[in-house]
């Protein structure tokens, strides 16, 4: 009977249309993409359909990097850069989270500061470097200030948005159990806002690296930015790319660090 029914009306399997929209970790895809692009460049420069003036040979860039590391110069450039990045970003992100939480919690501060932040956000911070040099000195001070200022605004915006999104019913719960104001902020508001704060941190730190290089290009003897600028002035593409590779690695490393932080702090999301 089933046969005849199937014979009369064609049986069509229900087409699958679910799935997707759910990013899953795929460990090998990222590195594989990198490797494929590098292999392509290597092949192109070796075979000659990419001229050495367009793109340096990846293997030559690697050799330059190794030489740089051997000579100890890498360290001389990396150390000041990393210090600037750490100090500047710590200042900017720390202040940004504090101000963002305050904006999220107090209506008066919100009314006063949100327009101010909106006014500061679109200013290209690098344009203010001369001003920072006058205020904080030509040395490290102006670089710290530039990075701090650049990370401050996006952190503020991400943080107060995240605080706004904290489930109000959890805050009411805290109040109904007589928790102190400070306990509510520390145990309910901050952890609840953490997902938003951390995704803001990703953006802030990327901006920090950009500003770091810009500041070092405008006035520094040592630092990755200075190294890249010098190589660029001499049209030494291999060294230029070596510097760029270091920057990219820095970007990948900070992103991985935030990923690790997310796994630690946001494990409860499952």
């Amino acid at each position: 009977m089933a046969d005849t029914a199937a014979g009369m009306a064609a049986a069509v399997e229900v087409p699958f249309r679910g799935g997707g929209f759910a990013p899953r970790p795929k460990r090998w895809v990222g590195p594989a993409t990198f490797l494929a692009l590098i292999a392509l460049a290597e092949w192109g420069t070796w075979a000659g359909w990419i001229s050495p003036l367009t793109l340096p040979r990846p293997s030559a860039v690697v050799e330059t990097l190794i030489a740089l590391a051997r000579s100890g110069l890498m360290f001389d450039h990396l150390l000041p850069s990393l210090t600037r990045l750490a100090v500047g970003a710590a200042l900017g992100v720390g202040a940004g989270i504090a101000v963002g939480v305050l904006i999220g919690l107090f209506s008066h501060l919100r009314a006063a500061l949100v327009p101010l932040v909106a006014a500061l956000f679109p200013i290209p911070k690098i344009a203010l470097l001369p001003l920072f040099v006058i205020w904080f000195g030509i040395d490290e001070g102006s670089k710290y200030a530039l990075i701090a200022f650049g990370t401050f605004t996006p952190t503020v915006v991400a943080t107060f948005g995240a605080v706004d999104n904290v489930d109000r019913s959890l805050i009411r719960m805290g109040q109904s159990f007589g928790l102190s104001w400070w306990s509510i902020v520390r145990k309910i508001v901050l952890p609840g806002a953490m997902p938003g704060i951390l995704s803001g941190l990703r953006i802030s730190l990327a901006i920090a690296i950009i500003l770091l290089v810009a500041a070092e290009m405008l006035g520094a003897r040592y630092g990755i930015g200075a190294y890249i600028l010098e190589a660029g002035a001499l049209y030494d593409l291999e060294r230029l790319f070596a510097g760029v590779v270091i920057l990219s690695l820095l970007g990948v490393l900070t992103s991985a660090a935030i990923g690790a932080l997310e796994r630690r702090l946001l494990g409860w999301r499952g």
Binding site: S169, L170, R172, M173, K187, I188, P191, G192, L266, W268, R269
Partner: peptide
Amino acid sequence: DFALLPWR
């Protein structure tokens, strides 16, 4: 809605 803290 229970109002439990999901991170605790």
